[in-house]
Design a protein around this nucleic acid. Sequence first.
DNA 1: GATTTCACGATTGTTAACAATTTATGTCAA
DNA 2: TTGACATAAATTGTTAACAATCGTGAAATC
Lengths: 253, 253
Amino acid sequence: MLPNQSVSKGLIVSIKSRANSQDETDFSTEPDENLIVERIYKAVMEQRLAPNTKLSEARLCETFGVGRMRVRRALLLLSSQGIIELHSNRGAYVACPDKAEANDVFAARMLIEPPLVRQLAEGPNEVSLALLTDHIALEDSARARNERTEIIRLSGEFHTKLAQATGNKFVSRMMRELVTRTSLIVGLFGSSENASCPDDEHSRILQAIQSRDPEQAETLLIAHLNHIQSGLNMDVRQQPQDDLATILGQSLR
Amino acid sequence: MLPNQSVSKGLIVSIKSRANSQDETDFSTEPDENLIVERIYKAVMEQRLAPNTKLSEARLCETFGVGRMRVRRALLLLSSQGIIELHSNRGAYVACPDKAEANDVFAARMLIEPPLVRQLAEGPNEVSLALLTDHIALEDSARARNERTEIIRLSGEFHTKLAQATGNKFVSRMMRELVTRTSLIVGLFGSSENASCPDDEHSRILQAIQSRDPEQAETLLIAHLNHIQSGLNMDVRQQPQDDLATILGQSLR
DNA sequence: GATTTCACGATTGTTAACAATTTATGTCAA
DNA sequence: TTGACATAAATTGTTAACAATCGTGAAATC
């Protein structure tokens, strides 16, 4: 059965939830399967898709209402970004970083982000910094409304937008990948409290940048990254949750 | 015609040339289409595949002797790495960076590589540095034999291996992508002389690292990157060469 | 009762035909 | 000759059927 297009009632958390509009680039006109990639990326950023969750082709086909080919292409792209892992003949699973990989991620961020914020504090990027101010507002707003998933995602995306503020395509891509990985790591090794970044640290970093104080900006950022990392417990990982647990309405039959 | 497997006599430069063995990881056991990706990656690194060269599916199928699906997956992966560009309904073309992108690449490298070599000079990475010594030997050897393509590729891969010496997967991936892009840029905007890095700069950088002199290592590397960039002429680009010009034995008919 | 074997079902991998689009060709008229 | 237009060829995009593989559970054996 399942001749390339099936119908059942299972649904993955809610990857389908249409974008909250208002922010981010618009993918509705994109000719590609980038929509699928973006949805899954977002679900991972919001820690709604737990590591090791199986993403079966058939499920994704019905979830997004597209053919198998699109789904497979999307999965290949996601795997190339390290968001999922493709096991031959066994399917796609949300990436599940181990201790070593977690260290690599933070080491890479410690290498890149300090010079990055330093450069932002030095250079005259007035325009792009406005977007960061707006972002802080979004974070506060989400915190005020206590919207967990929004808080988590925005908390990570602050760092992505720091990179975007450089206007450098490559730096942006790198940071996006590292931040995504960080989100998975925090979901795995973090307690439920430190899922998001400490409240005002982002705004203080931004202030240092706007004050043209590279030293202070760098210092604050390093401390910030250390806070995140030290909030993790590398030994007791939040149970890997294979499939079923993370799905809400599993197909009952 | 062309029912998924055709036969003609055209061949792209020589993407098929089997790996020179001896160095790099072995992909012969890989279950994937990574072989195709690696071959094209290598051809780009050696500047045998010029920017804007069209990579038609049929051609690649016969070149590698695989089905269309493999080729398409490989092309998708290559596009996600920015090595090629996929135009809807028009095919795959080797990426052709413009002036702005070139600046971004060097800006990104200026951001990442200095802290990278600094860290290498600080930390105690005895083992991984041995690989770099070997690499310098390879470079010298290739220079002695005057093997142009080898020189160009090794010249770029030195920087990739610097990143690999950190043992950090993510840093390695980033650098690899940046170096590949650099290769395209040098091919486009560089004169035929500075296609490879100045002779002894690599070895001097490595010496500084081995001497545990972070300052010196960073200084040398920055100068090195500046040398490369200043050797470019951003205005008169080496003619973009659309397809035919870059192919040797074009199908005559 | 525990372990192994086998067969079935479900899922992924592959192929080939078909559809859609673009590019090339050739004709005709200005 | 040049331009527009229509037709044909070549190339890419999509779909559906088929093949291969893996996981599961039942049956059989020790």
